[in-house]
């Protein structure tokens, strides 16, 4: 028998045996995969940002296909993606609200007090651990730009005074910058909300006054003037309903830290 025939037969026999084994294994260990998972996955932007609350796009696609998640959770893809996903699922696309990041600190290098020089790794996380890099306010922005590094969409940048600014157009609301911030200054908010107390300080009024000229000093004036729009949380005034924050309350804020953008 020639080598050609032998190799032909050997290859054929081996493949036959393994083909049978694979098909047996397939029928035995078959995992029913909803074909819609793949379709949805193909539509999703694929940045695995996690804004939908799932570890990645694949997981979100599975959740949507199984009915566990609504089709409008993808903030990166926005309405367009939600519509397509909903079409696959045969559902009405819910209203997807555009969410963006808001930086709640305006205590930049000129307006806040610095008590020491910092010599260490140039990142907010490290500086936060090392006692705040000399920034007297222990709630304010450290300015090393961990959020800028975290943004996959190039939507957040440091201004020249060391405070990050969000580009609302580019921001997809994925929330990675908020996660990267060691001081929780960045929050994710619907884009239509434009009124905030731009401070996160829980320091006593006296301390707040000492360390930063644009901090909330818990005077409570705004809460008194617009009780339905704001409330006090410890030493900090917080907007609860931007619609109901009156112009008067904004005008009367002594440190001008409550305003509209």
């Amino acid at each position: 028998m020639s080598a050609a025939v032998t190799s032909l037969l050997v290859m054929g026999a081996v493949a036959l045996v393994f083909g049978i084994i694979i098909s047996l294994a397939y029928s035995k260990f078959r995992v029913e995969v909803d074909p819609r998972v793949e379709e949805i996955f193909d539509i999703l932007p694929g940045v695995n940002c996690g804004a939908c609350g799932y570890p990645g796009c694949q997981n979100y696609a599975e959740a949507v296909a199984s009915g566990a998640a609504p089709p409008n959770k993808c903030t990166v893809g926005g309405a367009e993606v939600a519509e397509k996903v909903a079409a696959i699922m045969g559902l009405e696309a819910g209203e997807v609200e555009k969410v963006v990041a808001r930086v709640l600190c305006i205590g930049d290098r000129e307006k806040s007090v610095w008590t020491a020089d910092y010599d260490g790794p140039q990142s907010c996380a490290a500086a936060h651990v090392a006692g705040g890099a000399g920034k007297a306010c222990s709630y304010g922005c450290l300015g090393f730009g961990d959020c800028v590094e975290a943004c996959p969409f190039d939507a957040i940048h440091m201004n020249d005074k060391g405070i990050p600014v969000v580009d609302e157009e580019k921001c997809t609301g994925c929330g990675l910058c908020a996660e990267a911030c060691p001081r929780d200054i960045i929050i994710m908010e619907p884009v239509k909300n434009r009124t905030y107390v731009f401070c996160r300080s829980q320091d006593t009024p006296k301390r707040s006054r000492e360390v930063c000229s644009v901090s909330c000093i818990a005077c409570g004036i705004c809460v008194r003037l617009a009780p339905e729009g704001l409330k006090m949380e410890g030493n900090l005034a917080v907007v609860i309903d931007p619609e109901k924050v009156t112009d008067q309350a904004i005008e009367k804020c002594p440190t001008k830290v409550l305003f509209r953008i």
Binding site: M11, A15, F18, G19, I22, Y26
Partner: peptide, 10 residues
Amino acid sequence: NQVRIATFIV
């Protein structure tokens, strides 16, 4: 799909 890799390897 199931014999994809096996076939490619062949």
